Simulated assay, not measured.
Amino acid sequence: MPQPSWTATVVEHHRLRKDLAVVRLIGDAVPFRAGQYVDVSVPQHPRLRRRLSPALPPSLDGKLEFHVHAVPGGWVSGSIVADTQPGDRWQIFDPRGGDLHVDETGPTVVMVAGGTGLAPLRAILLDLIRVEDPPKVYLFIGGRTVADLYASDMLWLLTQDLPWLTTIPVVEDVTDPGIPDQWYDRIRDELGEIGFGEDHLIEGTLADVVAAHGAFVDHQVLLCGSPAMVQTTRDRLVATGTPADAIRFDPS
């Protein structure tokens, strides 16, 4: 029996960094839940599939958004970032995963996002907007430098609009400008300094900073990012008193 699939067409491709792009598509309504991931096939490499997490909750009009980081040596992710064009038709397969979810009537939520691990957590945040009285959410986002906080402008605006959302940006070195990146410089020149200022930043690793705010004894804790970040943060949280069964995670 053939595997179910859905078709979507690229309508926007925004390159935010040398190695990162946001891709928006419209097509079939894919039956996933916010926080899940899907496999995608792109025309540049139709025989290969790449696991991606939608950054929007499901919509009946078939809107999809993906945040894609070009992994070194990754043929598909590199092509998506560098070569995607409006009009490209993608195949979407097999929504999976379910660990990243929020009990809408449950206790306060702590989200921890490293890099494009933000995507499924953003989908959950946007899904919570439809809830009449959502739980309070603390979102920790992290990067090595300020330039790694690729969605800081979007999160700044979202945080201003949602009284139940608090965003805590974390960088390992607040003085390091990062490797020169023409895409980052272009966006900064066009939009100016929209986002979190230096007085909002906390210096340190995500694991250290999040653990320092714990223990999260009566919270829902969601982790998403690189496998190393997720494992280190989970270990630190458990060591400082957060119950292991309160932590839901998904290495991106």
Rank of each mutant, 00 (worst) to 15 (best):
E132L: 10
V11D: 11
F140N: 03
I194W: 12
D245A: 11
I92E: 00
F216K: 10
V217G: 04
V209W: 07
L158F: 02
D94T: 10
D173Q: 05
A123N: 11
G106N: 07
G214H: 06
Q36A: 07
A8Y: 02
L158R: 07
I141R: 09
D148M: 10
P180H: 05
V112E: 02
G27E: 01
L162T: 03
R188T: 15
L20Y: 09
V230D: 05
L139M: 11
W156P: 10
P43E: 01
W156H: 15
T205C: 12
P227E: 06
P227F: 03
A123E: 03
G178L: 08
M1R: 14
E132Y: 05
R24E: 14
R33F: 14
V146C: 12
A228K: 12
I141Q: 08
G62H: 08
V22L: 14
V38W: 02
T166Q: 15
G241I: 01
P54M: 03
D94R: 10
H13L: 08
V81C: 10
T166M: 09
V38R: 09
I187D: 10
I92D: 03
Y138D: 12
A215D: 13
R15F: 05
S53M: 06
Q220I: 06
V68N: 10
R130P: 01
P177I: 03
A207W: 05
D176K: 11
V131K: 08
Q3L: 14
G98N: 11
H14P: 00
L56P: 15
D245Y: 06
P95M: 01
L125T: 04
I168K: 05
G142W: 04
L158N: 04
R17S: 14
D28M: 08
F140A: 04
A151S: 12
V76Q: 00
P163R: 12
D148S: 12
P95K: 00
V238H: 07
A123P: 14
R186D: 14
G241V: 04
P54Y: 02
V10A: 09
G117A: 00
G178H: 10
L20G: 04
Q231G: 10
Y150K: 02
L237W: 02
I26K: 12
W90L: 13
V109H: 02
R47E: 14
G73N: 06
D189E: 11
L48V: 01
I187V: 05
L16Y: 07
F93Y: 15
V40H: 08
D208A: 15
P251D: 04
R15K: 15
C224R: 05
L20T: 15
Q220W: 09
E193L: 14
L121P: 13
A29L: 06
V30H: 09
S5E: 11
Q182F: 03
S53F: 09
H101E: 10
G97Q: 07
L165Q: 03
Q36E: 13
P86E: 01
A246N: 14
P72H: 01
L20C: 13
T84I: 12
L64F: 08
V110F: 01
I124L: 15
I168Y: 01
G195A: 08
A246R: 15
P72W: 00
W156G: 13
D173M: 05
L121T: 02
G98I: 02
L60E: 07
G98C: 06
L165A: 07
F216P: 15
R15Q: 15
T108Y: 00
P58D: 00
V42D: 00
P58Q: 00
A215I: 07
D103P: 10
D83H: 13
G195F: 10
D61Q: 08
T205N: 09
T240H: 13
A147H: 12
G241M: 06
K136Y: 05
